[in-house]
Design a protein around this nucleic acid. Structure first.
Lengths: 202, 202
DNA sequence: TTGACCCGGCTAACACTGTTAGCCATACTG
DNA sequence: CAGTATGGCTAACAGTGTTAGCCGGGTCAA
């Protein structure tokens, strides 16, 4: 049951241009550089003029978060839609890693600190996380897998691992652990079903 | 092989007082509140006077990070030293979760953003992460477990999970996956050793 | 005792940050 | 043509980390 992606409400042209400029600024120069004055400079206007189109910096950040969620969710859904069974866990994790590392500053912005839930497109967040659940077959295992993937990505982005760490192997170790657990859970569920059938038929 | 904890260099009295005040401010009012002027207010002096004792806000934050690493490392080492075999993975994770949630703002400060490696007490970071390695028996699995734990804690602190999530069960799912993988790895290693012995003796 | 020196406060100020108020030219509309 | 909305602008405010420079008090040596 793959839900449709909730459409983020589209902004007026000028506002969208500002968000696009903000994104470029963020990705090319980091979060520190994302300043109203710097943003104005890129756009050829002064900082206060931005407020004619967007209510504040917070709104810029929220819009960027939405873009991040949408893109990452897109990539993950592409993986689950490809429908492969064997290695699905590893494939999903590889896709997550690749997408997140491709937009490091956007990822950091979208995933660190409190989430302004009320201001996000409703359902977007759940939709972006849905592939984990689909692959794990179990909501708890799915959440755990996502937590692992986020932990890995954010620690890698922030260079928290000891120098010379072989992160490919660490990813593999985690992916194998969760793949194993997923098979276990599926077997357990199958056994339960079989037992139930046995009771029905006996 | 449990290394001794690297002693963080001790600061002059006044500097230590400032750090203590900073910690209280941080924990009680959050990261936003940790301001040089606010810190001065707590101490009964003006912000610029703080610079007579510490080179800047960054140094305050680094000192707080060190305290965080030391305390969490302490708790984790206590677990591995207790020496239990069964459920060691789950026990370590439970300890990590409890310690981190007990000092949310300190944990966030210590674990988000780039790590100023050069300014930290050498070896402290590795020492704090060592218990993961000891429990996993394998450095990659250990790193993966730590990544999972960090992901869980930071997402919980930032309220990133859907409302009503049963995080106890998610933790359990992750702990079981990694415990299973750990047993697997141990068996694999044992089999390899046995095979080697077989070759030797045959 | 006096002079030098340093410690640890202080104020003033600078360059930033996000944000608001208010002005004004242009363009569209009734 | 009058009126209004759009989208720029400057000036300013409160806050941030930080630096320069002043100064009282304590310590220590001549």
């Amino acid at each position: 049951m793959v839900r449709r992606r909730p459409e983020p409400r589209q902004l007026p042209v000028r506002a969208a241009q500002i968000i696009a400029a903000a994104r470029e600024l963020l990705e090319s120069e980091g979060r520190e550089a994302l300043t109203m004055r710097r943003l104005g400079l890129v756009l050829g206007i002064r900082a206060p003029s931005i407020y004619k189109h967007l209510p504040g910096k917070h709104a810029v950040e929220v819009a960027l978060m939405e873009a991040g969620f949408a893109e990452i969710g897109e990539a993950l859904h592409r993986v689950v839609q490809s429908g492969r069974q064997t290695g699905a866990v590893a494939a999903l994790m590889a896709a997550y890693r690749a997408e997140c590392l491709a937009r490091p500053n956007l990822y950091r912005l979208a995933t660190t600190g409190q989430l302004p839930r009320g201001e996000l497109t409703p359902g977007l967040e759940e939709w972006a996380g849905e592939p984990w659940l689909l692959v794990a077959g179990d909501s708890f295992l799915g959440q755990a897998m996502w937590s692992f993937a986020h932990g890995m990505v954010i620690l890698e982005l922030d260079h928290r691992y000891p120098d010379g760490s072989d992160l490919d192997r660490t990813w593999r170790a985690g992916a194998e652990a969760f793949a194993l657990a997923t098979r276990r859970a599926a077997q357990g569920a199958a056994a339960l079903t079989a037992a139930a059938h046995g009771r029905e038929n006996g």
